[in-house]
Design a protein around this nucleic acid. Structure first.
Lengths: 212, 212
DNA sequence: TTGAAAACAGACCGGGCGTCCGGTTTTAAT
DNA sequence: ATTAAAACCGGACGCCCGGTCTGTTTTCAA
């Protein structure tokens, strides 16, 4: 039996930084969930990617489901706000606003060379129909999204004289087209479909007199 | 120690029926993949649902991936043909054809009370970006779908005098809207979004003079 | 200074996963 | 009748999953 080997002195002391650690975990989880999917990524994958111990991971997120819900609330929702809600609200015209959003996403895709898809759609399709909590979380993001678009549409020429329900339908149609285009972009690994959607939606917005 | 119990005589002899057995496996796999997702369903789930032994399952589909690819080729592809390609090809007018397809899907959803989503999109979103073989399989179905829609558009009034590429773009736009509407229908568990898409697309088709 | 809670580490567990294997039965060609 | 392949059975195998547990370190309030 070998003699006990002296344990080396700990050189670097640990520093507790729960905020930063939580951010690292969410960063890793968000990235892995989007590129590989929720069920296809294990907790150990998250631990490795975030370089976090199992204890720390479990301390901040008790279960995998908690982590998934946190990703939706803290990452996917803000992603939708940054890429869609804020730009379209501040755009000088709805048509150019939507076109710029879609084209810039397409450019990002082609620049990066790969498509992981729409963050919201990815988790929605995989988790929405299976689990009620996930569905509620996803649904609230969709609701915020379509409400913002609807508000913007109401500020257009045709929007001022249309019923609130019709504005919502138009808003949802924009989401339909974008989501579907993103799905195809993901399977084709190209931004082409987003540019096509941009072009067609631009004309659709003009034809419907959504000016301004 | 109890005495050996005489093994009861096998009463019902086994009958080899590989075609029927393969069908049962594909039935179960298709259903489970659509309702719960590919990664969320295990091989044992398929065995239980199809009431098939592990040996039989492995005999017909060596790996889970093989089973998934078979579901795409033999089930999802024909599902797209039955619900989209054939009806739109035989429709007297593009506008009513598309409207009928979307509305009948919406009716089916509300009658059934639950939405598992578009079969193709479900597997596309979950598997396309992760695995090259899955992506190719999904992509070929999309290609067949948009080609059929493009051919139908070319037979409309505006279609006869437009470039082939524009017809394809219009065809893809229909797919975009449908896919996105189905995604939202899945998270909202309602057919409403499909009816909205039906209404908006109907007008869009008319505005673009896709008559006939 | 002290005590307790929060933050983190890492080994560990039962279970379920996908897959494979030896053996048996059925089928069909010879 | 013989034989080989195909079809099917049922369980074992090894791995890894999500989650738990014990213990240590850090932080901060009292």
């Amino acid at each position: 039996m070998p003699v006990a080997i002296a344990k080396p002195k700990k050189t670097v002391p640990r520093t507790n930084d729960p905020t930063h650690m939580k951010k690292r975990i969410l960063d890793a989880a968000e990235s892995l969930f989007q590129t590989n999917g929720y069920h296809a990524t294990s907790m150990h994958d998250v631990m490795d990617a975030a370089r976090v111990s199992g204890g720390a991971l479990h301390h901040h997120f008790a279960t995998k489901k908690d982590l998934g819900l946190a990703v939706i609330h803290d990452r996917v929702a803000v992603s939708v706000r940054e890429t869609w809600i804020d730009p379209v609200r501040d755009s000088s015209s709805l048509a150019t606003g939507v076109r710029n959003i879609l084209n810039s996403i397409a450019d990002g895709i082609d620049r990066r060379g790969s498509v992981s898809g729409c963050p919201l759609n990815n988790l929605a399709v995989e988790l929405a129909s299976a689990d009620a909590d996930f569905r509620k979380a996803v649904q609230s993001v969709f609701a915020e999204w379509q409400a913002a678009l609807s508000e913007r549409i109401k500020r257009t020429r045709a929007g001022t004289r249309m019923k609130a329900n019709d504005a919502l339908t138009a808003a949802r149609f924009l989401i339909f087209a974008y989501s579907g285009a993103m799905n195809l972009a993901k399977t084709e690994q190209t931004g082409d479909s987003l540019r096509q959607a941009s072009h067609t939606l631009f004309q659709w917005i003009r034809e419907n007199d959504f000016v301004g």
